[in-house]
Amino acid sequence: MSAPHPFSVAMLLADARLPGGGHAHSAGLEPALLAGMAPADVPVWLRGRARTVSLVEAGTAVVTAHLLSHPPVGTSAQTHLSAVVDAWAARTPSAALREAAHLLGRGYRRVARSLWSHRPPVQALEAWTGPLPRAVVLGAIAAAAGLRSEDVVRLTVYEDAQTAAAALLKLEPLDPLAPAQWVLEACAAAEPHVLRVAACLTPEDIPASGAPQNEGWAEAHALLTQRLFRA
C-alpha cells in the first residue's frame, strides 16, 4: 500500500473527529474562564497561547521528530526521549498540565500504535515505560509519517486554538462561527515564529515560552469538582 501524503496525515491529526481523547480537553479555556477571564478576552488570549505555550509544545514535537528520524550514532532512542521529556517538563511547571498532557499522550499513543505500529519512530515509543506528553507522541507520529517541521508547528498551534474554540461553544453563548475567525488569527499570530521553532534540533532549543498565568489557572481548575473538561 502506498503511503498517504504527509499533508493528509496532518489533516487527520488536526481533525477533532480522530478518536484520541481530545474532546474532553479545553486547552486551558475552562480553567481561564472559571478563574475570571472575560469571554471577550478569548481572542487575545488565543493569540497569546499561540505565541507562548503552543510554541513549547510545537518545539517539543519538532525536536522529538528530528531525534527519532536522525538518531546520532551511538545513542539510543530512549536516551533521546528521556532528554526531550525532561526538557518539556522543565518548561511545563504545572503538575496539572503535565498530567493532562500525559493523558492526551496516552490517547495519541493508542492512535500511533494503531496506525503506524510498523514505523521505527513509533516503535521507539513502545519501549518507553513511563508517561509521554502528547507533544512527544506527536513528534514520533510526525517522524513516522514524514511531516515537515513547519507543518508540525502549524498543526500544534492550530490544534490548541481549535480545541479551545470548540470548548468555548460549550461554555459561553455565542455564534459558532465567531471562534473560527479567532482560530485563524491565532494561527497568524504564530506564523512569524514558525520557521524559528521548526529549526529546533536539540532539547535545549525548545522554546521556554510558558505562560505562568495559564499554569496557575490550570492548578486551580484541577481542584474543582464541577468541570466539563479535563484541563
Binding site: 481523547g21 474532546h23 466539563l228
Partner: peptide
C-alpha cells in the same frame, strides 16, 4: 469521575479514549 467535554455520547462511542484510560 471522567470529564466528557459536555459530550457524554461521544465519550462512550465515537471517542472512548478518556473512559478506556
Amino acid at each position: 469521575a471522567v470529564e466528557t467535554g459536555a459530550c457524554p455520547h461521544t465519550a462512550i462511542r465515537d471517542d472512548v479514549t478518556a473512559n478506556l484510560l
